[in-house]
Design a protein around this nucleic acid. Structure first.
Lengths: 199, 199
DNA sequence: ATGTAAAACGAACGATCGTTCTTTTGTCAA
DNA sequence: TTGACAAAAGAACGATCGTTCGTTTTACAT
């Protein structure tokens, strides 16, 4: 790994942390350079424009989520176990993210929803992929016989993602002590209703 | 209504529209003044600081939501009918809000969740009130015999709000054509499970 | 209609924004 | 060790940020 690549990686790490607290549009080259102890122009040269920096941050966030939440779940067997492991990792991610200010992608989902441009597209793509990942997991659970065969996997993914967003809001904004319990109960119910009727 | 009050109201209307697209921190006195055809200093004098302007915008947004969504629902009889009317109004609000860029309060929920200060407190208060309003509605539905008596109204409110957030995301960011259908199905299921077992 | 207070303006402040240069420093293979 | 190129710094740019202040205009009660 060359010097440039190392610096770029360090910039992205710090930029991701800053974005998680201040948002993508609160991300500033000046403060970022100051936090890293380097010059604005030196930092700037790595990305060419602020928008490209923001896009790199979004990609970096998605990669971190994949590494932290998705990858460990892939160790579990397909179907329900993997899905449950994913939900567990997801709750942990939302509860105590490896970032000081919560998931930057969720924040960006609302920050950019009406600001057309490449940045919005990148965020929309990652959220769309997440949706499809959950729906795909549900489909696998059907194939494995864990979920009932008439389950609407898209509806399932919608409700699962809904719980994640609401958990973040209740946990991070309202700091409600019951937030995690609500989220787990909701997930349990969702999985229960999706499961094969054993009665 | 004096001249000053009229101007202040006009400023808040425009500021709310601008906030809905650019977020609370994207709200800028310069662009706001330009859109209104008045001077920065003249506008500034109405609020004393940018943070007070932002707080006023949050209050204004909450008032608009109360007027547009909550108030019409209060015409319906207590319990389930009122709750259903509220959900209907809520979906309409999220789908085609009287603002160009979606609900500013939802966006602010993620924008400010880790930035302590009076602004964060105002947003948290309005979201907390919303939660309690929904939970209270569910409680009324229990009293009216529409919902089962062992329903956890806080859990109910959590899941209802979750659906609203997810709907906004799928509708505004992903622009998914099935978003409304998913939201309505989710709400139906939630109400169904909360309802008295008539079997 | 007149006087007074409220409301809006215009100009300027220092600070910071993203970006563009040129120059200096550092890396790394030959 | 030298030479070529990548990486970082430094200074400056016009623009915009929130805010202050003194002046001018407008509204409104008497």
């Amino acid at each position: 790994m060359s010097k440039g690549e190392r610096t770029r990686a360090a910039i992205l790490d710090q930029a991701l942390a800053l974005t998680s607290t201040d948002g993508l549009s609160g991300l500033t080259i000046g403060t970022l350079a100051e936090q890293l102890g380097m010059s604005k122009s030196g930092l700037f040269a790595h990305f060419g424009s602020k928008e490209q920096l923001q896009q790199a941050v979004v990609d970096h966030a998605a990669a971190l989520f994949a590494e932290t939440v998705v990858k460990p779940a892939l160790d579990k067997p397909r179907g329900l176990p993997r899905l449950l492991a994913f939900f567990d990792g997801w709750i942990a991610w939302s509860k105590e993210p490896p970032l000081p200010g919560g998931c930057p992608l969720q924040a960006a989902s609302f920050e950019l929803d009406d600001r057309p441009g490449p940045l919005r597209d990148v965020v929309a793509r990652t959220q769309g992929e997440l949706r499809q990942f959950v729906a795909g997991g549900a489909r696998r659970a059907i194939e494995a016989g864990h979920f009932r065969s008439d389950l609407d996997v898209d509806q399932f993914a919608f409700e699962a993602i809904a719980i994640a967003y609401a958990f973040t809001m209740n946990q991070r904004l309202l700091r409600h002590p019951l937030a995690e319990g609500w989220a787990r109960t909701a997930i349990d119910g969702l999985v229960q209703r999706a499961s094969r009727r054993v009665v």
